[in-house]
Design a protein around this nucleic acid. Structure first.
Length: 709
DNA sequence: AGAGGAAGATGT
DNA sequence: ACATCTTCCTCT
């Protein structure tokens, strides 16, 4: 049928490839796309060290680094990409700071004692952080976004997220913090086993560890150990320890009281915490001791005075107000300790709760740490504040074992020198993520059909490389792994791209081959998005982000390019934001296009309303109003159930006014979606269609429909 | 497996 | 009461 489609306004042009960082050798934050700046958050963030980070495949590393390093990015616009890394085999000593003395985060290493809070805000916007896309139908009404934005703005100490620790009370499947470490160890020891990495390495360049040949294979190795992810926990047995550990996900919602979500003052689930995990992670405990030992041993390297000095230099002073913008959840404790914010190098050994603190530092110097160190895992959990000091949080031993690559929360440039990692085809702005209790909802798709694609430009070598993909945040703060979403590997006949899974810290990473024969381009048709229960993640020790309304993510791609000098250049690019929640019935469909076509109702109008928000008992009411506002007529469109299809409604509009419409009429309509209140009036120009059916395509985007013919 | 709609559970 | 989150159900 003929159809007249009108252009869908693209309110948000696709931004440049979402390069997170500056270009060239500079690691600084990417150019702001114009986001608003929120200082408080930023600041907090800067302290964050998320537990996430870790280097390359297999490595779990967290930057041992104290969070501060990350925060630095903010203030350091230009960080040298070089200098990241150490020899693969090299011990700690082999690591070096980038020439610029910049930390991974991009912060100048020792020179800047304070973190510029405001500097990095908005930096992320460079890649189109705003939720948008040309795909009108995928765009959520701005009104809907607001809330979310507000929530995200909470300056949660997000980075405080401790990847390695799950709340003991979280569930039956909850594992000890150590379990994660264990997983890593077992899973990744081989390939990524690397020297302890200094947290301060330059994020972009790392020791050459990515042997093309080896690069991908690593993933394989990891995968083998990890096993395939549990797609549907509830239906399938857990096969992977790793998976459990890293996600802290549990198979199903416990029927225990925990489900009731009773929280203590800190928002922690008190009722359950006391209960020992019924089924502790099998591998967790046993290995813990081992890893801890290792860990402790390794930690000493970080105790060097130089390191401490550096860290302190980078950290902000105690005047910094952590309380500001800190989520309620964390604020309480944060305030209490804010004075001690000055960053201290935490002896790595930090505990995991289980590990007794080894203190290389005088108590007075690390008051907060001392506090944290006390108590066993459970105690910590119940007590408060350790999460306030991410850097003080326990680290997974493995974190330090293979830190040769930049942590996932480090900001990296999308291009440097001749290389540029670019997203050639952006993903659609909406992709409903699936829960573990559901089946997969498929791979993320591209706006125009097909799938997103990424290409590394400027690489002329014959060696294939590995493209890493993980789910990152899409809020105003620095890009980092998203705590509530994980990439989900899709396999099957329809998937042309092979991939392997690896877990870095608490983040699942998909490793995809970048082959010279394909011009170093990869079609991302193997990546779905898994949603973790907010309650599970929020209960993780150290996690300060809240999941509610935190439903936008970005696909983050990284590639590590071996350099002649033996180092590795790491590039990263993030996609436009992707809304992962089920579309809300509150979203208002709008007329996207209308077309005339033959219809069964002579004299009447048949309209096809396409959208995502039509519940089965939706009603569409059309109203014609006079200039003075009074209704000339109003009628409820009759829904043709037989023609009702997903995302669309077919309604029959009987002849109104008892006459054929021969000239355009401004019509308003509103939609009553099920039990929801009626939506606001939407306007469109009802065009005569010569007695034929009029097809209107509505979308959920909050954009003007204009007049079309 | 891949989607979409919704009921029931929770959070505000 | 209503917005969101999770879990289920259904269909292809």
């Amino acid at each position: 049928m003929p159809s007249t489609s009108f252009p869908v306004p693209s309110k948000f042009p696709l931004g440049p490839p979402a390069a997170v960082c500056g270009s060239g050798e500079t690691l600084g934050p990417s150019a702001p796309a114009g986001g608003t700046m929120k200082s408080a958050e930023e600041e907090h963030y800067s302290y964050v060290t998320s537990g996430i980070g870790s280097g390359l495949p297999l490595s779990s590393a967290h930057p041992s680094l104290p969070a501060p390093c990350h925060g630095l990015q903010t203030s350091a616009p230009g960080v040298s990409t070089a200098g990241y890394g150490a020899a693969l085999d090299g011990g700690p000593s082999s690591y070096f700071l980038s020439s610029g003395g910049v930390r991974p985060n991009g912060a100048p290493a020792l020179e800047s004692p304070r973190i510029e809070i405001t500097s990095y805000l908005g930096l992320h916007h460079g890649n189109g952080q705003f939720f948008h896309d040309a795909d009108a139908e995928d765009v959520l009404p701005s009104s809907k976004r607001s809330p979310s934005t507000a929530t995200l703005n909470l300056p949660s100490l997000e980075a405080y997220r401790d990847p390695s620790c799950l709340s003991p009370a979280s569930s039956l499947s909850s594992r000890s913090c150590n379990s994660e470490a264990s997983s890593y160890e077992s899973s990744f020891s081989y390939p990524y086993a690397s020297p302890q990495t200094s947290p301060w390495q330059s994020p972009c360049v790392s020791p050459k560890t990515t042997d093309p040949e080896e690069g991908f294979p690593r993933g394989l190795g990891a995968c083998g150990l990890l096993g395939s992810p549990r797609h549907s926990p509830s239906t399938s047995p857990r096969t992977s320890v790793t998976e459990e550990s890293w996600l802290g996900a549990r198979t199903s919602r416990p029927s225990s009281p925990c489900n009731k979500r009773k929280y203590g003052l800190n928002g922690r689930q008190l009722s359950c915490s006391p209960h020992p995990s019924p089924t502790p992670s099998p591998q967790g405990s046993p290995r813990v001791s081992v890893t801890d030992d290792t860990w402790l041993g390794n930690t000493t390297q970080y105790t060097s005075s130089a390191i401490v000095a550096a860290i302190n230099a980078l950290s902000t002073d105690g005047s910094l107000d952590l309380g500001d913008g800190v989520p309620v959840k964390a604020r309480k404790t944060a305030l209490d300790h804010s004075p001690s914010v000055a960053l201290k190098v935490e002896p790595a050994g930090e505990d995991l709760g289980a590990t007794p603190p080894t203190s290389d530092f005088p108590p007075e110097e690390f008051p907060s740490f001392q506090h944290i160190r006390k108590g066993a895992f459970c105690d910590q959990y119940l007590s408060v504040p350790q999460h306030l000091y991410p850097w003080a949080r326990p680290r997974s031993p493995t974190s330090y074992t293979s830190p040769s690559l930049p942590a996932l929360d480090w900001q990296l440039p999308s291009h440097s020198g001749p290389y540029e990692l670019r997203i050639e085809v952006q993903p659609k702005s909406h992709h409903r993520a699936h829960y573990e209790t559901e089946g997969s909802r498929g791979a993320v798709k591209a706006l125009a059909g097909g799938h997103p694609s990424v290409q590394l430009h400027g690489y002329m070598e014959s060696e294939p490389l590995t493209l890493q993909l993980f789910i990152g945040t899409a809020d105003d703060r620095l890009l980092r792994p998203h705590a509530f979403y994980q990439v989900h590997r899709i396999t099957g006949k329809t998937v042309s791209t092979t991939s392997h899974e690896a877990i870095l810290s608490n983040t699942k990473v998909l490793e995809i081959p970048l082959l010279p024969e394909n011009n170093m381009r990869a079609i991302i048709d193997c990546a779905g998005i898994l949603k973790l229960r907010n309650s599970d993640i929020e209960l993780r020790k150290g996690e300060t982000d809240i999941g509610r309304k935190n439903t936008r993510v970005r696909l983050v791609f990284r590639v590590h390019v071996p350099q002649p000098n033996g180092r590795t250049l790491s590039l990263q690019v993030a996609s436009n934001p992707i809304e992962c929640s089920q579309r809300s019935a509150q979203e208002l469909p709008l007329v996207e296009k209308q077309s005339a076509a033959s219809g069964p109702v002579l004299g009447g109008k048949r309209m096809v309303l396409s959208g995502h928000n039509f519940l089965q008992d939706s009603k569409v009411i059309f109203v014609e109003k006079a200039p003075d506002g009074h209704h000339i007529w109003e009628m409820e469109a009759k829904i043709d159930g037989a023609l009702c299809k997903p995302n669309s409604l077919v309604v029959e509009i009987p002849p109104f006014r008892n006459q054929r419409i021969t000239s355009p009429v401004q019509v308003n309509f509103y939609v009553c979606n099920g039990k929801r209140k009626r939506s606001q009036y939407q306007h469109f120009t009802y065009l005569p269609a010569n007695g034929n059916a009029l097809f209107l395509t509505l979308n959920a985007a909050n954009q003007p429909t204009g007049c079309f013919s």
